[in-house]
Nucleic acid binder design. Sequence first.
DNA 1: CTCTGAATAAGACTGAGTGTCAAAATCGGG
DNA 2: CCCGATTTTGACACTCAGTCTTATTCAGAG
Lengths: 223, 223
Amino acid sequence: MRSRPPLDRSLPLRERKKLRTRRALADAALRLFAEKGFDGTTLEEVAEEAEVSKSTFFRFFPAKEAAAVEAETELWTAYLDELARRDLAGPVLGELHQTLAVAIAGLDPDWDERFVATRLLVARESALLKYVEHNRARIRNQVVASLASKLGLEPEDLRLPVLAELATTAFTLAARPWVYQDGRGGRQALLERHREAIKAIPGSLELTAPPRDANRDRPDRRG
Amino acid sequence: MRSRPPLDRSLPLRERKKLRTRRALADAALRLFAEKGFDGTTLEEVAEEAEVSKSTFFRFFPAKEAAAVEAETELWTAYLDELARRDLAGPVLGELHQTLAVAIAGLDPDWDERFVATRLLVARESALLKYVEHNRARIRNQVVASLASKLGLEPEDLRLPVLAELATTAFTLAARPWVYQDGRGGRQALLERHREAIKAIPGSLELTAPPRDANRDRPDRRG
DNA sequence: CTCTGAATAAGACTGAGTGTCAAAATCGGG
DNA sequence: CCCGATTTTGACACTCAGTCTTATTCAGAG
């Protein structure tokens, strides 16, 4: 991994210590899971690596999975925070795009690296995938509630979950190739891909299959 | 619950017994989880209710959650099967809609009731929600792969996951109110809601927030 | 009826996650 | 600087999902 950035000096000493422990646990989890696999690593090992006990681990994270996906969690938390403080004007999908872009821009400088490592791990470990999928679903529900309140719409309006879904889906799809290139181009490249993905959405709805038997059974790889 | 439909007479006796055991386990899980909660029920209790052992349970289901969501699984399996055998023509989103509609129409007559019970339980038990969310994600990936092959597109084409996502999201949203009315109107009502949800998608993209300060801080419930 | 291979039961075992309790660190007030 | 209250922590015990190993049962073939 790499050395940690200095902790915010303004925090009381106790809080700083807590943050250090939290980061030590998250780092240890990420590193050990990457080395020996999620199932091949026990919680005791993670705790020992961070020089705390198993019970301390559970005071910081609700589950084994959570420690490995801190970067994910930070992202979506920042997204919700930004959405809460934002005034919406214009097309809602565009606003959600901007909201997420602003949230990303405001993350810690070392977030890129941790996020890439997290996503690479998540792609290999289905237990972690399950966890982040569920987390994303929870975020979407909160986005729907927040939008409904801001726009004065009923929370049952089907358009809201559709938009919330599209916004997170677009980001996730945009992030995938960026991650597999180890975050090449940095955060700017990620934001650019994100923009492209959002732009591609309307065209998706128009995608049309070729007429019946231009190419019968299977188009078989190359058209 | 209710009495089971008769099992297919054509199957060898052994296979029929297996199916009976499977159903007994699924029924027991659904009933016990509804009664005493998912966490409040142990696997031993489920197994005992179905008069088999814990190890037998795991030969039919990969996890505690799986037994309670058989109806979900049947739905999405039928969806994938139908998609595999289908020739696509015209707008892809419409085709996915039709695919799912046909799949639903072909399910067992008792599916409605089991599906409603399953969804009501899933809404209350986050462990089950997690499980079905992950299952839906797996299905979507397979839909993307299937579409890419049928349409002769690269699997990296961003439009495919967007469409797959929209198709399952629309159904899930459509099913929610139907489930909360205990499946009133039967399968036809569900299909009708499904149609409406799909129709609402293009309009979602156009949803626009009112100009900046028509109603400053919060639209506060009613516009 | 017996043989065989598959299905099943029984139960030991691992590790996640929870709860309890006592020791230790931290802090406020004198 | 010290003392008592409060909070944080580690050690430990416990439950239960899920895996594995071994022994038993049973449907079906000869």
